[in-house]
Amino acid sequence: MIRQRTPASAPTLSSAFIRFESVGLRYGLGPEVLHDLNFAIEPGEFRYVLGPSGVGKTTLLRLLYLSLRPSRGLITMFGHELATTPRADLAALRRRIGVVFQDFRLLDHLTVVENVALPLRIAGASEAEIRQHVPELLGWVGLTDQMNARPPTLSGGQKQRVAIARAVITKPDLLLADEPTGNIDSALGLRLLRLFEELNKVGTTVVIATHNEALVTQRPHSIMRLSGGTLEELAAVAA
């Protein structure tokens, strides 16, 4: 069951880890696809962005992982007002975010190990650190026997787990997942959600975009429902 928690227009913004204020977005000269987004996310929260396909969930996540700049409004990430943050400093903010893309975006020419190690290489980790952490994490997601496989040879579920491992290898402050259960059966979807919950328990803030209301009901957390380009903030309780 889902019930409304707070009105979307009056979020608590003062100590926000992530804060959107009157954010709107349009592509080029087209109509606004997102308008007047006002919300705040605190550290350690677990949130769903819920809404039907095509409503703008991915666009909202793109704003969160700094792939898009808003057409209007203010976004604050990790205490940094993005509009005034120098471009050179955005890379450091992006390294604090792990993303599980809807289409995984694994690099087909790299092995599973190399795909998962990529964020560590970007962060400047040593080979010793990479050799220690990557196999450990792949063991945790159950892909020890696929370490040297390449993505085209993996099943959808295996790709999903590689994408998750890549997103969390650097222990990001914020984990974003776009329809993480979209390509897999419900049993595996639940297992993945439990995995996200485990990460959340160790302090990672998690935001999951999904259209799957049944799944949300099974694993209840705070919900932001996206409808008609606007957002309403809801709270969920266990069914």
Binding site: A88, A91, V99, L107, I122
Partner: peptide, 16 residues
Amino acid sequence: REVVELLHLMGAKDSF
């Protein structure tokens, strides 16, 4: 382009 965008989104510096 897709790989470059991915690296950029993962926080790779331009110099990297």
